[in-house]
Design a binder for these strands. Structure first.
Lengths: 191, 191
DNA sequence: CAAATAAGAAACGGATCGGTTTCTTGTGTG
DNA sequence: CACACAAGAAACCGATCCGTTTCTTATTTG
């Protein structure tokens, strides 16, 4: 039988971690099951990571895509799409719910990693995008609020929790049907 | 020492369940700890519930407030506020994150209960509210979409996951700064 | 006040799981 | 081809936790 090593093996282990969490939740993620799912055995895992937490944290660290911190400067719509697509990708690689099961249930390290790598950058980027659009006079400066910046991420996260990874069509729908109309709405209603 | 019984004791146990989940997460919710936190002992728990899952499910069932399924008919703003306030209350009694830790990690029964008792009614109510407002000509019929109906719940849920239970001020902000401006926005951008 | 009922304390069995050890077997390297 | 190294298999230990049993003690009820 062919025997994998090094990087190839490690990647298979990471995949197994997300598969397991996605299928059975973090609660039933055991080292034995990860080993079997990856077609290897437990000592292989413990030769690479000190503990289960370390393995999950590393899997997350290696697999999470980068979310841009600063606007690309392609305009309001394109920049919003870029950030939200990156956010969507983060849910996709972690099988969506897997990501949240980990963030909520695993140690606070996972939570912090997720926040630092995904949500905080997305929030900063969106705020910067809105501010730039306001500076250009495209939208009302009153629209640069934390609450509005949270709308996009919240909708994607919401869908991910419900069990289905949001697709690209949803990202464009969020931008075109929610964010842009909202940003161009008269601010009369707001105090 | 005074010894509690019946309903008083049961309520203390439910409180202990949510306290424990809120403090340490569902993963570290053990029957021993619940018993100690409630100032009682394990056999008392097992005389009332067959298993840990049954206890948690029952605690959720007894504690979740009802979310109205149908609009109150007080107008667009008041009706939206009513639904979102009820939703907020659901997060509050379950210590916010506790609710999600359970929904994500516990058996699918908890998830189904949460959906049937909270999210599905909220979705139905909001959709009905929007449709009624469209019928009255207050908003564009094109605004009655699933995505728009999800905005309010998604924002509250998002905040709850981040660890802080949304307060009443946030509910009014969601309605006044997000939903109403969005609903009154020109639908030009939407396809 | 006596009897029925339920709470609380302590300890246990069994299963699961994290982490380790030992040993065998396959695979690249010199 | 031989040696070093890492993968894989199996079994194990200790801790944790679910669920149960037994017994004692308080409270309610008749």
């Amino acid at each position: 039988m062919t025997r994998r090593r090094g990087n190839e093996l490690q990647q298979a282990i990471f995949d197994a971690v997300f598969d397991q969490i996605g299928a059975f939740g973090y609660a039933r993620l055991t080292m034995d099951r990860v080993a079997v799912a990856a077609g290897t055995s437990k000592p292989v895992l413990y030769r690479r990571w000190d503990s289960k937490e370390a393995l999950v944290l590393d899997a997350l660290r290696e697999s999470l895509p980068a979310v841009p911190e600063t606007p690309l400067g392609l305009g309001l719509r394109a920049d919003l799409l870029a950030v939200l697509h990156a956010l969507r990708a983060a849910f996709a690689v972690t099988k969506g719910i897997a990501f949240h099961a980990v963030a909520v249930e695993a140690g606070h390290d996972c939570r912090r990693l997720a926040d630092e790598r995904i949500f905080a950058p997305a929030r900063r980027a969106i705020t910067a995008i809105l501010r730039a659009a306001a500076d250009r006079g495209e939208i009302d400066p009153g629209s640069v609020t934390e609450l509005i910046a949270d709308v996009g991420p919240a909708l994607l996260r919401n869908r991910a929790i419900d069990g289905t990874v949001p697709d690209e069509a949803m990202v464009t729908a969020v931008v075109d049907e929610i964010l842009l109309p909202l940003l161009h709405a008269p601010t009369l209603e707001r105090r």
